[in-house]
């Protein structure tokens, strides 16, 4: 069960809220202060991408963010409900196509986060990321 779960309607203005919540929970979990900027950026990229997918495909369901404090790591999952996007969206696919902001976002995530996994389920895509916990909460 996630430590904190956040559901937000797929509107760009809520992405900032998701960033702030994720950074606050990560800090409390004991993620190194030095990488909180990376957590903030990575979760923002994942949420922006999910918002873009939902809006682009007329999906009215909310975007889901799960923040989980584990024994030695802090993990974040950002789930969209648009099937068929995550699997084909390798970070380096069409790397020069900067107008494709979703893929640019994935490129930023993969550049920032060592432990990242992008998968597709029957109901949508999930970006999983984790960071080590350096100090006990």
């Amino acid at each position: 069960m996630p430590t904190v779960e956040l559901l937000f309607s797929a509107q760009p203005e809520h992405v900032r809220t998701a960033r702030l919540v994720a950074a606050a929970v990560a800090r409390r979990a004991g993620v190194d202060e030095a990488v909180l900027d990376e957590v903030r950026l990575a979760v923002g990229e994942a949420c922006s991408r999910a918002v873009g997918l939902h809006r682009g495909n007329g999906v009215e369901e909310p975007v889901r963010v799960m923040l989980t404090e584990e024994e030695k790591k802090f993990s974040i999952e950002v789930a969209d409900e648009v099937p068929g996007n995550a699997a084909g969206a390798a970070p380096d696919a069409g790397g020069d196509e900067l107008s494709d902001e979703g893929e640019m976002g994935l490129a930023v995530i993969s550049g920032l986060v060592d432990d990242v996994d992008v998968t597709e389920t029957a109901t949508g895509g999930v970006i999983r990321m984790s960071w080590p916990i350096v100090t006990p909460a």
Partner: peptide, 13 residues
């Protein structure tokens, strides 16, 4: 204070 890939896209544009 904060810049993401959407901002990068705008600058490239």
């Amino acid at each position: 204070d904060f810049l993401d890939s959407t901002g990068l896209g705008v600058l490239v544009g």
